[in-house]
């Protein structure tokens, strides 16, 4: 493309030179998977333990119980958005609105009849400032990693654009128990079918340790993370 390109590439080739190191064989003696099956009780308990360590709120429900739980978490009045960060300003009226991705199972939202639920799509996205007026977001997930307490979103229609799970202050993430694997490699091997999708790995609410390495949960990303495990 430019002069710089060929010059850098030729510098690299010169640097490697005659004594170019031979491409290494990669020793992969690390665990490609955990000892427990995806969705097993051991794996779920581990995930819950890790998430709670990050100060995420974990709820375990059946599919039938999900709409009721979401109604509890997101029901109309601002005060009912639970898990509020102590000291944070109470949400204004508009912030009781909930944003959802276009492909979310509508049955999940059956209990939110009196809530302002706004759909966000790639074709008709809410502006960032509009998202800032929304109190919470509900998404599904692609996969979860128990050992690290991580949930991965890949931007498919039940998870939506990256912005919707970022700007609202409360993120309710619904994970099916069958989606929970034990280790990072299991998740990566699952995601590598579509590496081109925008991926967001989430391990608890946003946090910082920049002040005396004292961890504070809740900075720019959602300050409250609810993970709902649905069997």
């Amino acid at each position: 493309m430019s002069d710089a390109r060929s010059e850098i590439l030729s510098r690299v080739r010169d640097a490697l030179g005659a004594a170019a190191p031979t491409p290494a064989r990669i020793p992969r003696a690390y665990r490609p998977a955990g000892e427990h099956a995806a969705g097993s009780d051991e794996v779920l308990d581990l995930l819950v333990d890790r998430l709670e360590d990050y100060r995420a709120h974990v709820h375990r429900v059946t599919a039938a119980g999900l709409p009721g739980l979401l109604a509890d978490l997101l029901g109309g009045t601002p005060g009912r958005v639970s898990g509020r960060v102590p000291g944070a300003a109470p949400a204004r009226g508009a912030r009781s609105a909930v944003v959802v991705p276009p492909g979310l199972d509508p049955a999940w939202l059956a209990g939110l009849a009196d809530v302002d639920v706004r759909a966000d799509t790639r074709d008709a996205p809410l502006a960032a400032t509009e998202l800032d007026e929304v109190g919470a977001v509900v998404t599904a997930a692609r996969v979860a990693v128990a050992e690290t307490g991580t949930i991965v979103l890949d931007g498919e229609p039940d998870q939506g654009r990256r912005a919707i799970s970022l700007v609202p202050d409360v993120h309710v993430c619904v994970v099916r128990t069958s989606q929970v694997v034990q280790t990072v490699p299991e998740a990566v091997r699952l995601l590598d079918a579509h590496p081109e999708r925008p991926l967001t790995w989430i391990s608890g609410p946003s946090a910082t340790s920049d002040i005396e390495l004292d961890r504070v949960e809740g900075v720019h990303g959602p300050r409250t993370l609810h993970v709902v495990l649905v069997r």
């Binding site: 360590d53 996205p125 050992e147 081109e196 925008p198 991926l199 391990s203 340790s209 990303g221």
Partner: peptide, 24 residues
């Protein structure tokens, strides 16, 4: 993450590949 912040995983990791139409 374990080496740097001493966490099992850092709160957020973002991955993107070029441009995703309609997202980002």
């Amino acid at each position: 993450p374990r080496s740097s912040t001493g966490e099992r995983m850092n709160p957020y990791t973002s991955m993107w590949t070029g441009v995703t139409p309609g997202d980002g």
